[in-house]
Design a binder for these strands. Structure first.
Lengths: 146, 146
DNA sequence: TGACTAATAAGAATTATTCCTATCTAAATA
DNA sequence: TATTTAGATAGGAATAATTCTTATTAGTCA
């Protein structure tokens, strides 16, 4: 999804394209990293030294509500965000030593017998599946760093 | 795993069995609920009105290090804890309306092609897999409550 | 009994996130 | 163009889960 398209979707949602919003969108433009709000804030401060962390959170939440981005939970106490493409559903490998995260092209829902859920009368809205361990650089020195 | 056994494992780890610890263990004795630290704290205060929340956290972490309990992340901003039995690996259904959580007897790792990870040289230590949605009581009135 | 160490209570500190409020600004209107 | 209005922002306060600090207490062992 191009950043032009993101701007369109914000506008369609009735939101203004402020310089701060444009800059948040630019952050995502440059590839598949999984930034935390704090990291995005640091990045944006290069252009807008006075931008508040609240503005970052507020806009990330707005974009999440519009389905433009997704919030990821890597169980380290903070949210990370990534672009939500149309056909880009995926999960992650997360290194518990260096924090690296990588996308994984495997979704367990395909293998879950749906009769299991039907019996329980449970309606699935979303799911998590993340693998935690040591990436190629960190295997060998396996000591989890907090 | 009986609570007697839990006490044994704490002792083997070089830890004392204080009344507070005994009481935390008792909380888990009564079945498969997924308590938060705050809930355990409330429960224990019935017997020890002065017990501190810090004591609960400290001991939950100790028990986690010993592998006696496991921390669950239901993405609602707080940890939940459950007994870690030997053959009891499982995942969860979590209702995003009422908070109900139920165990699910399905593990996606069985279906993940291990060559995928071998290629990436990633060593898996643990994984998450949780289904979020509406339980049988909450289907019908689908409005997520924060 | 005395010394040593683990464990505790109480409250302060930390961290991620959200809320509040006064100000600002872009768009709509007159 | 000047005015109005609603959306957005900065800054700082508030919140909530968790951890840290410190002084005190209580087992354990010599």
């Amino acid at each position: 999804m191009s950043s032009v398209c993101l701007v369109e979707r914000l506008k369609k949602g009735g939101y203004r394209i402020t310089p701060q919003r444009q800059e948040i969108i630019n952050c995502f433009g440059s590839g598949g990293k999984h930034y935390s709000a704090e990291e995005i804030h640091q990045e944006i401060k290069n252009k807008f030294p006075n931008v508040s962390l609240d503005t970052v959170y507020r806009n990330l939440n707005t974009m999440r509500e519009l389905g433009i981005i997704e919030a990821l939970n890597f169980e380290d106490g903070k949210c990370r965000y990534e672009l939500a493409g149309e056909n880009s559903h995926h999960h992650h490998l997360i290194c518990i030593r260096c924090g690296m995260s990588e996308e994984l092209d495997f979704c367990p829902l395909k293998f879950l017998d749906s009769s299991l859920l039907r019996d329980k009368k449970f309606t699935v809205e979303r799911h998590s599946f993340e693998l935690y361990g040591y990436c190629s650089s960190c295997t060998g020195s396996k000591r989890e760093v907090k």
